[in-house]
């Protein structure tokens, strides 16, 4: 077909092309690195809480309440004399755990349902989408609060309530992506290659559609932390005296004029955590969307 010289030339071109078109390495991605640093630091703080926290976060010291920052209590104490820094550190553990876990369950459940509905279509898809529409008709917070009220307060019921409400988002996102992906020729090619529907869905479509759900999941963690904060504010959250940023903001706001740091610093932590997770989501979306050349 080609002369040896032409073939050699074409191959040299290919080799050069393979080099020049290689993808930017992940560590050169600014947003991703910022996200990893911030979220990583928070996770580290949460994991090392027993070592980092100078005091027991629930130990009261009624002789030393509402203390201003000092050498002993860097961020002062709250109205029960508990060390705010220690509560902040332990709070990271509770909030991050609840945030991640509350996302994990609906992520898995919603994605699997959405993928199956989108891929096979038919009555299954119709029924699922009607359910999704019903869920979307109610505001997220209202539903969560009602469900927590029904299930009773506590960490487990928060997971359950959030999962019951937010799986629909994942189902909807993944279904939409699957609808697009299943029309791609590479899916037809996989069918012609004799592959089963299950294999195509998991191995060929899955990796191409999950990135959107993962990116959404990052922002959803932020949402869930906010939800926990809100629930804590309404007295439906994590039961006191467990240290948790939401209840700390709630407790501290009484003293905003005298001891501003009591509410502001946990609030700042929420902001930092949100920022870190958003960066992580942005970075992941860069990393996970394959460079579509055209």
């Amino acid at each position: 077909m080609m002369s040896p010289a032409e073939l050699l030339n074409a191959r040299l071109q290919q080799r050069r092309a393979l080099r020049s078109r290689s993808i930017k390495p992940w560590y050169r991605n600014g947003a991703l690195m910022a996200g990893i640093v911030i979220v990583g630091a928070l996770v580290l703080i949460a994991v090392l809480a027993p070592l980092l926290a100078p005091y027991d976060p629930i130990a009261q010291d009624l002789r030393n309440t509402l203390a201003s920052p000092s050498a002993e209590h860097w961020l002062g104490t709250d109205k029960f004399g508990r060390d705010i820094l220690s509560r902040l550190i332990w709070g990271a553990q509770v909030d991050l755990r609840v945030g991640f876990l509350a996302v994990l369950i609906p992520f898995v459940f919603g994605s699997v349902l959405g993928a199956i509905a989108g891929y096979f279509g038919g009555w299954l898809d119709t029924i699922l989408m009607r359910i999704v529409d019903v869920f979307f008709a109610f505001p997220f917070y209202v539903m969560v609060i009602v469900l927590v009220f029904i299930f009773g307060s506590g960490e487990a019921s928060i997971y359950l309530a959030i999962a019951a409400v937010s799986w629909v988002s994942y189902a909807k996102i993944v279904r939409g992506e699957v609808l697009v992906a299943k029309k791609q020729d590479y899916v037809t090619a996989a069918r012609l290659g004799g592959m089963s529907h299950g294999r195509i869905l998991v191995k060929h479509i899955g990796p191409n559609v999950l990135s959107q759900a993962i990116i959404y999941g990052m922002s959803d963690i932020v949402m869930d932390i906010m939800a926990i904060v809100t629930l804590g504010y309404l007295g439906l959250g994590i039961a006191p005296p467990t240290a948790e940023w939401g209840s700390m903001i709630n407790d501290g706001q009484e003293f905003i004029t005298t001891q501003w740091q009591q509410a502001t610093i946990p609030g700042l932590m929420v902001v930092v955590a949100s920022l870190g997770l958003s960066f992580l989501g942005d970075g992941l979306s860069d990393l996970l969307s394959p460079e579509r050349r055209k």
């Binding site: 020729d185 090619a189 012609l192 592959m195 191995k203």
Partner: peptide, 28 residues
């Protein structure tokens, strides 16, 4: 289905962007 194979018009949508060429061939 193995006996009759197809080559598609659009070379961009006909290859799975997440599989290396080797992985794609190996699977088959």
């Amino acid at each position: 289905s193995r006996r009759i194979q197809m080559v598609f018009q659009d070379p961009y949508s006909s290859l799975n962007p997440r599989l290396t060429v080797g992985a794609m061939l190996r699977e088959l």
